[in-house]
Design a protein around this nucleic acid. Structure first.
Lengths: 102, 102
DNA sequence: CGGGATCCACATCGATACTG
DNA sequence: CAGTATCGATGTGGATCCCG
């Protein structure tokens, strides 16, 4: 459980879906560095956990939209806080690492 | 970066050290299910990142105390929130999984 | 477009044995 | 007591190819 919500891609995906529904390709482009496999895997896991809702349109070409469920929305604040802490302290951590490695 | 602070053992270790300094064996007993290897590894990583302070007493038998640094203390609220969300929503997630798997 | 399937390199982790 | 070292099983992630 901690594993999932603490997961790197979970944090990024929930963050990306915080404000609006997005399509697969859109997410892939936004989450720089994610492979298609990892994105699919993360989304499937989040869908299974009831955090993300997956809506498939039976069109050609296919169209799939991802959004947060009610449960997923309760996670938004949490992951934003996590990201905020990361961005705000990454410098201190990098400096500590330099000191430690020396 | 997200990887570390989101890590399962990081959450548990920071949580365990939130209120008081603890020894290695004490942490190991408290964090049920952690192997000695993972605990050592997690603590080393957190020490390297400047989140945990490691104090070694030159005694026989050895005594090593772990505590949070100033930076580490800023993480306490965050990890407590993560744990709180987990504990508060684990039931919903498990139910969603049952539904999904069916 | 949104994946599924497969292969493979690499990292992770548990178990075990040993030590200052 | 608090580790280090090592091995072997398992898991993870990227790359590639293919499909409805």
């Amino acid at each position: 459980m901690l594993d999932r919500i603490a997961d790197k891609w979970t944090v990024l995906v929930v963050g990306a879906l915080a404000t609006e529904t997005k399509r697969f390709g859109q997410l892939r482009r936004e989450l720089d560095g994610v492979s298609q496999k990892m994105l699919t895997q993360t989304l499937r896991g989040l869908e299974r956990d009831g955090i993300v809702y997956r809506k498939v349109y039976a069109t050609v070409p296919p169209k799939v939209e991802y959004s947060l469920t009610t449960l997923g929305l309760t996670l938004v604040n949490l992951v934003e806080t996590v990201r905020y802490w990361s961005e705000g302290n990454i410098e201190k951590v990098l400096m500590a690492q330099k000191r430690y490695d020396a």
